[in-house]
Write a protein that binds this DNA or RNA. Structure first.
Length: 281
DNA sequence: TCATCACCTGGAGA
DNA sequence: ATCTCCAGGTGAT
């Protein structure tokens, strides 16, 4: 109970992990796969229209994790700045499509694309007086026409979304299996899919498949590494990372930050974007 | 294996 | 007004 109270909902929603969320009056309403979630900060309350539980990873031993990652001075500062920030455990299919859509885009635009997909393809559902569209099922997106997907403003990602949905719908990608297997095996499976490279795969692994050693390296993370950790890692560079550079850097990072490297990344990412006054949802 | 380049779209800044 | 650049990258050459 005490742990629950330390979760900062707004900080967590506004940390680049999720997109289909809106603040209405004093509560956050969001879509997670086939569920609608309603969150209140004080008193803390999380309601789900379905079976979603542990959205905030309440089963993690946070005390242990925070003390582990706080060995690093910069991370310690980031944790102190946003102590209520949590990693979330999202619906895997939604997370997968979300981050495929994220490539070369902005948070605002990603949110818009996903809302369009829900409106066009998701089942309408009412929960506690709120009517919204759930996230579309793999089967629906797998069989969607390119015209309709383009209509959702996906741009060049339309093809990625369709193919990625087909892979899930056919059973070639099985999220429950990916959850059970190790980081590297899951990573390799995801990267075979069109539209998924190292960064997108790491986001999916960290935010929905329980891989806490996933450490997404995007533009911001790269800036962070350059700014604070230049001396710690041989492979930090200013230029865009090639695939091999990314892998090598990731290896060094996990060695340095430890098994909960993903948590470190989230705190650092939040800190640096806030520092630069970047917008969230 | 690496370096370039194009890519849908929307918004910000020159 | 019009252009350029960038935004949580990836794929093709």
């Amino acid at each position: 109970m005490q742990k629950t109270c330390t979760i900062d909902i707004e900080t967590t929603i506004n940390s680049g992990q999720v997109f289909l969320w809106n603040k209405i009056e004093d509560q956050w309403i969001g879509v997670d796969g086939k569920d609608i979630l309603i969150l209140n900060q004080s008193p803390f309350r999380a309601r789900s229209s379905g079976s979603t539980s542990n959205f905030f990873r309440e089963d993690d031993n946070l005390e242990k994790i925070l003390s582990n990652i706080s060995r690093d001075k910069i991370v310690r500062k980031a944790v102190k700045q946003s102590p209520g920030l949590r990693l979330v455990r999202q619906d895997p299919f939604q997370c997968y499509i979300s981050f495929i859509c994220s490539s070369n885009s902005s948070i605002k635009n990603i949110k818009s694309m996903l809302e369009n997909l829900c409106k066009k393809f998701g089942t309408k559902r009412e929960f506690n007086g709120y009517k919204l569209h759930l996230f579309p099922k793999p089967e629906i997106l797998a069989n969607a026409s390119m015209k309709d997907l383009i209509g959702c403003k996906l741009g060049f990602r339309a093809k990625y979304v369709k193919e990625a949905s087909q892979v899930v719908n056919s059973g070639k990608i099985d999220f429950s299996w990916l959850k059970k297997t190790d980081y590297f095996t899951a990573l390799e499976s995801l990267k075979k899919i069109l539209g998924i490279g190292n960064k997108v795969a790491d986001c999916i692994l960290l935010f929905s498949l329980d891989k806490m050693d996933a450490f997404p390296i995007d533009r911001w993370t790269q800036r962070i590494l350059l700014k604070y950790y230049k001396k710690n890692f041989d492979d930090v560079i200013e230029k865009p990372l090639t695939e091999k550079k990314y892998e090598k850097l990731h290896e060094e990072i996990v060695k340095y930050f430890g098994p909960y490297a993903g948590y470190s990344q989230q705190f650092l990412f939040k800190m640096e974007r806030d520092l630069n006054k970047k917008n969230w949802l």
